[in-house]
Design a protein around this nucleic acid. Sequence first.
DNA 1: GCTAAAGTTGCTCATCTGAGCAAGGACTCC
DNA 2: GGAGTCCTTGCTCAGATGAGCAACTTTAGC
Lengths: 314, 314
Amino acid sequence: MDESTELLAVRVAELYYEENKTQDEVGALLGITRWKVGRLLTRAREVGIVRIEIVHPRARRLDVERQLRDRFGLKDAVVVPLPADDEEVSPRVAQAAADYLAAVRPIPRTLGVSWGRTLDEVARLLAPGWTVGVQVVQINGGVSLNSKQGTAAQTAVTIAQKGHGQATLLPIPAILEQVETKRAVERDRAVASVRALGASASAYLYSAGVAGASSVHVDSGYLTEADVDELVAKGAVGDVVGRYIDRNGAIVDSTLDERTVGIGLDELRAAEHAIFVVAGDAKHDVARAVVTSGLCSVIVTDEATAHALLEETT
Amino acid sequence: MDESTELLAVRVAELYYEENKTQDEVGALLGITRWKVGRLLTRAREVGIVRIEIVHPRARRLDVERQLRDRFGLKDAVVVPLPADDEEVSPRVAQAAADYLAAVRPIPRTLGVSWGRTLDEVARLLAPGWTVGVQVVQINGGVSLNSKQGTAAQTAVTIAQKGHGQATLLPIPAILEQVETKRAVERDRAVASVRALGASASAYLYSAGVAGASSVHVDSGYLTEADVDELVAKGAVGDVVGRYIDRNGAIVDSTLDERTVGIGLDELRAAEHAIFVVAGDAKHDVARAVVTSGLCSVIVTDEATAHALLEETT
DNA sequence: GCTAAAGTTGCTCATCTGAGCAAGGACTCC
DNA sequence: GGAGTCCTTGCTCAGATGAGCAACTTTAGC
């Protein structure tokens, strides 16, 4: 588009969009036919002279969502635009996840949830009365060894309460020290039944952690920084329901995995609705691993993550 | 608009604007009638959920321009949107002024110009060949006492050259020390003829300066900082064609004014086209004085200045 | 509980707008 | 210089859209 055409397009756009004139009127005013006006407007939109944007905390990027679905064979995708303020990213994604959960049809009778900061936020933002009589099951261990005790339970309970249903918890450490202990615990009748209930869920809602010193597992005392460093050295990019995976979505350390309590990755892969919530630049790698290895059927994320997924997997 | 309607409006806007669906399709998809879709879109635009903006260096704000015309009885107004970068404001206004000048009809045979940074920029941005055979006359004195000598002449010459015409200069100090000198100079045949030519111009193009230590007059040595301080104390807000005016557009110091060489304010007020170019936050006060006192028939400015003019003159 | 006022909804109809097409113009490559 | 190709232009026509209206619903005030 040459200089003078561009200038004309600007004038046309001003008269049409800002002055609310019809294409006919604009044409008459500028001495061109209305068809030319129409074409200039189309071009102005294409070229970006005219920018139409939807400014709202609950806005979504449907075009990006479609690309994600297509590229990774997902059942669904939810992408929220990046807000001006970085702090706002995770609440918006959480809100979107909460909205999505409330809209899942058929309504899940049994919902398996993991825990973590992101999930906590989702629970908090979920609309009270989002459903009726839901059964929420915690799908991975979580009683932490230090202060933050109870947040894992809190998440499940909140989601259950707001859905006028009840929560079934898994009050067991996420990772046990000995394989034997883990086996023994799983043989326990109560624990086994929770595991069974979890395995039967019709939908799962979970997030992922980054493999690094800031991991919740280090924070909670399940793993030392050295442990995590070793995992990273072995190729770990992050954890999903407490299990560390590499960039291909494979378990990094099977011994560690044996000591991890909760649902297995294959159960997640087989699930009807496996809703994966991720926000933030740090999690691009884990997100990619999850999405490419079919761990989720639905992803809820921010635009930056979505673009990262789409760009680098060409 | 309540929460749920708003959310619906967002969904509607996304499907309509981003997915390019018809209102009918959007309605079918969301289970509402197409009329409701149309109404939601209208509201979304009104409320600002949908924002349509024209992003272009040459874009204008026609709505604001209309307000300016109406409020101040101007013949015309040109308002450029604020660019993201503050540095960009004055070039954009200058460009707009250059564009405007080239589009003035009937084409001015004789154009009176003042000088200064703004005018210089206008001259620089003017399109070569913007007209043919124009006669450019310098309307106020300008040979400066220090280094920057010649810029005043430069402006007029550039405008004339680009308009395939010739420039008539007024190579005399803007302000003389003695009234007698000024009178004597004006009696000079050559000078008198330039003044006469200037007075006969069919269009004037000029800017304004702020009354303050940074004034060109101080910079050029015509006035001392103390002089300017005194002017300010007397109510001066700035100068137009070298003459200091107060907020009502009246001459502040008649003695000083008597020593100022060039066109008078009344000649400006009587002119057919008095095109006033102002940019920048510092000049809001002078701009208001010029505009409210009828010194210009056309204003070319930036959005911030325009808003300042409109807001505070209610 | 009733009435008036204000707001909302679905509809008709006139107008606006984009897709698609044929004709004209400009540019390229022998 | 001429044929072929690409791009632009104005047009027809069908589909999309907004103004205006009457019926209906909600709200407020008594």
